[in-house]
Amino acid sequence: MITYVKYGDIFKISGVTSYAHGCNCQGAMGKGIALQFKERYPNMYLEYKKRCKEGKFILGDVFEYNQENVNIFNLATQKSWRTSADIAAIEKSFETMLHLATEQEINKIALPKIGAGLGGLNWVNVKTIIELVASNYPKINLVIVENFKE
């Protein structure tokens, strides 16, 4: 099931301890939601940056990071921060994330509108892909915040 929240902050959604966001494959988290993840989870950022440098985080990949009771899915959706998100990479990484979440019995994940903010894609197109992939995982509740607001 997908719940769309018009305005909000993924980190302030009640009952959520798992998060996802789109990342580039160059090791940069300097703007938008990625910057918030970098600031909240500096050790995650260092591991992400290392993977990028070593070529171990490419389009369509998922880098899962766990810290205490928080689970973060970093989705490789852009080659670099200078390029637009890649719709095929969003689909592949989203499928992998939901598969991993199912294996771990994670039933709720909060995320922004992946690929359609700084990623530059049309949200309607991305939303269609997300809904299609998510339909195969009915036990996972996704909470998608469409616009950031504290």
Rank of each mutant, 00 (worst) to 15 (best):
M1H: 12
M1Y: 10
I2W: 01
Y4T: 00
Y4G: 00
Y7G: 00
G8V: 01
D9Q: 08
K12I: 01
K12L: 08
K12V: 01
S14W: 07
S14C: 12
G15C: 04
S18L: 06
Y19F: 15
H21Q: 01
G22H: 09
C25N: 03
Q26T: 14
G27P: 09
M29N: 08
K31F: 01
G32E: 08
I33C: 01
A34Q: 06
A34V: 06
L35R: 13
L35T: 08
Q36K: 15
Q36W: 10
F37R: 02
F37S: 06
N43D: 14
M44D: 07
M44C: 03
L46G: 02
E47Y: 05
R51Y: 13
C52W: 05
K53F: 10
G55D: 08
I58C: 15
L59E: 09
G60D: 00
D61N: 13
V62L: 08
E64D: 11
Y65E: 06
Q67C: 14
N71V: 15
N71G: 08
I72R: 09
F73E: 06
N74P: 03
L75I: 06
L75V: 04
A76M: 09
A76N: 01
A76W: 07
T77N: 05
W81E: 14
W81H: 10
R82C: 09
R82Y: 11
R82I: 12
R82M: 13
A85Q: 05
I87C: 12
A89M: 06
A89T: 10
F94N: 05
T96K: 13
M97R: 07
H99A: 13
L100S: 11
A101G: 03
T102V: 03
E103N: 15
E103G: 15
Q104I: 03
Q104F: 04
I106W: 09
N107Y: 12
N107K: 14
K108C: 05
I114V: 13
G115I: 07
A116I: 07
G117H: 04
L118V: 14
L118D: 12
G120L: 06
N125P: 09
N125L: 10
T128P: 00
T128A: 11
E131W: 03
A134S: 14
S135H: 11
Y137G: 09
P138Q: 03
K139Y: 15
N141C: 10
V143L: 02
E146S: 00
